[in-house]
Design a protein around this nucleic acid. Structure first.
Ligand SMILES: [Mn+2]
Ligand SMILES: [Mn+2]
Ligand SMILES: [Mn+2]
Ligand SMILES: [Mn+2]
Lengths: 217, 217
DNA sequence: AGAATTTTTTAGATTTACCTAAAAAATTTA
DNA sequence: TAAATTTTTTAGGTAAATCTAAAAAATTCT
């Protein structure tokens, strides 16, 4: 059993890991958790002592198998709660993240299994992210960032890599929600902003927005 | 905003208050929260500083209006979550208390209002306790402890004053669940155990059990 | 390579929620 | 009402999670 704080560190390392054998840097964790590098170093020692991470001084931290399973378990809870909030309690997709950040720390195997069952074993959350099953297994989605598409290519919005309320509200207003079909008509050479066709209408989005939209081609 | 710990102290004071103007004793709080009197004294000063309790040295603590509203809000959340667990996720009444102890600290007004709505604005929880509405208002049930009934009197089980799993499982086995009609046939002068008729069958329960069963006559 | 910069760690404090032991106040008993 | 007992508080300390400032290591630049 670990504290909320420890769980949040494990989850941060999980999300910051991009390649299988990567060591996540102290500063990256500090930034993600809005804390100081010194605090991260302290916690890294503690998590290493507990066997949850492999920590190498001046190099960084990597989840052990136990640490990975713990982190995935929290992500599973986070995403199931998000589905519950949207599907059952009629929350909008931009309203769920912060509450799920709290709910993900509730400890009850029975609760999560029953919730999963009640929701019909959903495979993705309201932001298109895959939901690990009770064994921590899930399929990796294949996608390309909208900012990487070139003029002429088209696809479907399958996810977002940013969960903040303002960002999601913005997409909602544009009609860029999950499942939306888009076609890129032009990419500005000047600022990387993207012009695209959505429901027969032309819309223009900044490169910053495009970077966080995941497309299935 | 207060910490889980502070919330648990407020709730303890709330539950220990029997008459309107009563000051709850330090030791009573310590016992309820399984902590030491010295720790309670520390927290009393803190809660008093925050204006949540009226604290008088060597006398005890009483909730202020703000403290009362906070406590009732937590009780409301606890009981709504218990209904959710039983009604929606098919938990048994003896399985919900501990999880609700965690869920009651989740902070989201929208979540609780939507949950209340989803559940159809229930008035009582799975143990027969009344659920405060969003303004903290609720009707006090009238009941008498089964241990106070005399031979010949009858009534309906409307609640329990003990929420532990073993106790509730015991009642379940006996068939003494909410709504059960009972008639007292005999009260032992020796040990206070109670013999009663339930569904045309005679059952015998100890005084300790009878004390925690609430009857509507 | 050596200097400058960035990243990380260490040292030493702070805050919160606990604790034990001893002192003080209140209550009960004789 | 004085003594004994119970209740509560105070004093002083610990562990977890944080912080700032300074030292140390690693990386990047010239
Ligand atoms: Mn989220
Ligand atoms: Mn999500
Ligand atoms: Mn309960
Ligand atoms: Mn209950």
């Amino acid at each position: 059993m670990q504290s909320f704080t420890e769980e949040n560190y494990l989850k941060a390392i999980y999300h910051l890991t991009e390649q299988p054998d990567q060591y996540v840097q102290t500063n990256a964790i500090a930034e993600r958790l809005q804390t100081k590098a010194a605090s991260v170093t302290d916690m890294m020692k503690k998590l290493a002592d507990k066997g949850l991470i492999d920590y190498v001084r001046y190099t960084g931290a990597k989840l052990t198998e136990t640490g990975y399973q713990t982190a995935v378990g929290i992500v599973r809870k986070h995403r199931l709660w998000e589905v519950f909030l949207v599907e059952t309690l009629n929350f909008k997709w931009d309203e769920v993240h912060d509450v799920a950040e709290e709910l993900e720390h509730i400890n009850s195997v029975l609760l999560i299994e029953r919730l999963d069952e009640f929701l019909g074993f959903p495979r993705t959350d309201p932001h298109g992210d895959p939901i690990p099953d009770k064994h921590g297994k899930f399929e990796k989605r294949s996608f390309i960032k909208l900012s990487k598409l070139t003029a002429g290519s088209s696809g479907t919005v399958t996810g977002v890599s940013e969960h903040s309320t303002p960002f999601l509200k913005h997409l909602e207003k544009l009609g860029l929600t999950l499942g939306a079909r888009i076609e890129v008509s032009e990419v500005s050479e000047f600022d990387g902003s993207v012009e695209l066709v959505l429901n027969n209408k032309n819309i223009n989005i900044s490169r910053d927005v495009a970077k966080h939209i995941l497309i299935n081609t």
